[in-house]
């Protein structure tokens, strides 16, 4: 009897004891931007940005119409006309900057990139040169800032769904990219990236 009582007491202590071991503390570490982080949801994450920009770079480099022009085409590639129409707030520059920079590095001069967001800064500097406040630099003067042949437009759209019975959430994300001819408005290149993520939060959050 005494033994049974002791066993019961021990079982009780175990039951009311710690339900699970707490996670150890964790120092800050560098992580691979292509890896799925430990903090995950159904939204766009770093590995998605890397994948989508790499995919678009490869596709653009393989586009004969662009890459085999006699003169390197000039492209404006910024987030001005890249629209976020999804449910996730996102810094669109994360996507477009990576796309432009990797494309510029890989194209090795076969494509030229015009920075329209720097236009005001460049104007100011041009004026200083023309006013004689500064000399003309080493590259000489031009009549005007560079005009562009193409501009990137695009859209990030999402479709969210939630199962009322299970609480499972899903998000379909589509990122579309196009290069628009700035004279004819013809779309000369287009591609898209799509993904679908789903997850089920713990029941205590549903």
């Amino acid at each position: 009897m005494k033994t049974k009582l002791m066993l019961l007491a021990m079982a009780n202590i175990m039951l009311i004891g710690c339900a699970s071991a707490p996670p150890k503390s964790k120092a800050v570490t560098y992580q691979d931007v292509r890896s799925q982080g430990q903090v995950t949801g159904v939204g766009v994450e770093s590995q998605d940005i890397v994948t989508v920009s790499d995919t678009m770079v490869r596709d653009l480099l393989a586009d004969a119409g662009l890459m085999k022009s006699e003169r390197a085409p000039r492209i404006i590639m910024d987030a001005e006309y890249f629209k976020n129409e999804g449910t996730q707030r996102i810094n669109k520059n994360l996507i477009v900057d990576r796309l432009r920079i990797n494309l510029q590095r890989a194209a090795k001069g076969k494509l030229q990139f015009v920075s329209r967001e720097s236009a005001d800064m460049v104007n100011t500097e041009r004026q200083l040169k023309r006013d004689g406040v500064t000399d003309s630099g080493t590259a000489g003067l031009t009549k005007a800032q560079a005009g562009a042949d193409y501009r990137l437009v695009g859209r990030l759209s999402t479709l969210d769904s939630r199962s009322q019975s299970s609480g499972e959430v899903e998000r379909y994300t589509q990122m579309s990219f196009e290069l628009i001819d700035l004279e004819s408005s013809v779309s000369v290149w287009a591609n898209q990236y799509e993904m679908k993520k789903g997850g089920l939060d713990d029941a205590v959050y549903r």
Binding site: S20, D201, V204, Y205
Partner: peptide
Amino acid sequence: ETIYADDPAAQAAR
């Protein structure tokens, strides 16, 4: 937005 799957604190709360 984080999906709490296999989270110790969430499991404990159940």
